[in-house]
Write a protein that binds this DNA or RNA. Structure first.
Lengths: 184, 184
DNA sequence: GTCTATATACAGATAGAC
DNA sequence: GTCTATCTGTATATAGAC
């Protein structure tokens, strides 16, 4: 069954968001689903296979969520607040964004996973830029959409990273204040 | 000699900024300075001793740099640009901020190192907030200094993290544009 | 698909000689 | 302060039985 494969992938994703790729082993993963480590290698021959699958799936889910969010909200305010809320949920579980975590571990990732990681950030920022540009009339920011998109993405990734250290959500709240400040 | 200790600490700092705490071993560290791993344990009995020393020294250097920067520049514009330049230098070496990297590895750090890490971010943001508030007349941002300080720190940490994945410095440039945009 | 068993490598840490 | 030697644990990965 590829049910096991998906189960392993889900558990790996959670563990990486909390502790990083390096702390996820074939053994801990096997224990979590009640098999032996050799069985995990059946589903994911190497660790690179696992990290690549995890990043790709995370990106697909993230993009799907942005598309849903796009349909649900009509204003820029609504869309940006919903975007920010994704990071609130991540932090609430004391996690990092999967890709923010793996960005820190960049040098230990294989080329394919690194490429998939770059794609995640590019797609997120492309969505933000598109969204901002469509609603340019709602903006007061003296900042091009291209720049604002990158500021928001970097800021949110950094905010979750720093807030997890400090406890609480002071940085994320500052980011919400920024979003509010750039809206008309 | 504590010359060796400082040498080990410097090499550990560089290695952590590039690859993270987990990739720095007593063996690789020993090889880099031409001793055996047991000798590294003489200077830093446990890995926690090493990480704590590294974060504390990094924070002290960072704060000293902020104080120097404070004396050198008179305008908010000058001070914030100089602050941003610190992150440019980090990225230019394909490194992360030591504390940004270790923030990702939070769950694997001992309590003392975690506390020292929190202190780094608090001190950096406190400096920013103080600096912004002193020059409130140079600001156009409809954002309190407390929030702007956190946005800048989160944004810069995130920008270096994401830019290293992508290559180039697009996110850091967007942050520079933000700084320019909030100045009168 | 999952298992046992194993190969190989490397991690942090310590004992005790020099 | 540094060394050799070693303990113990864990990592990724593979071979081959079931």
């Amino acid at each position: 069954m590829s049910d096991k494969r998906e189960q392993l992938q889900a558990i790996a994703t959670q563990a990486i968001q909390k502790d990083g790729v390096r702390s996820v082993s074939f053994r801990t993963l096997a224990d979590a689903v009640g098999v032996k480590s050799a069985s995990v290698h059946y589903h994911f021959p190497t660790k690179s296979d696992l990290t690549h699958a995890v990043v790709s799936a995370y990106t697909a889910t993230f993009v799907a969520r942005l598309e849903a969010l796009e349909r649900k909200h009509r204003t820029l305010s609504g869309k940006l607040n919903a975007f920010t809320r994704i990071f609130d949920e991540v932090l609430a579980d004391d996690d990092l964004c999967l890709c923010g975590m793996m960005a820190a571990e960049l040098t230990s990732l294989d080329a394919a996973t690194q490429h998939a990681l770059k794609k995640f950030f590019d797609e997120a920022e492309a969505w933000l830029e598109r969204t901002i540009d469509v609603h340019a009339d709602e903006l007061t920011a003296p900042l091009p959409g291209k720049h604002l998109a990158k500021v928001l993405m970097s800021g949110l990734e950094g905010a979750v990273l720093l807030d997890r250290v400090a406890g609480g959500d002071n940085r994320l709240r500052a980011m919400r204040a920024l979003v509010k400040a750039v809206l008309a």
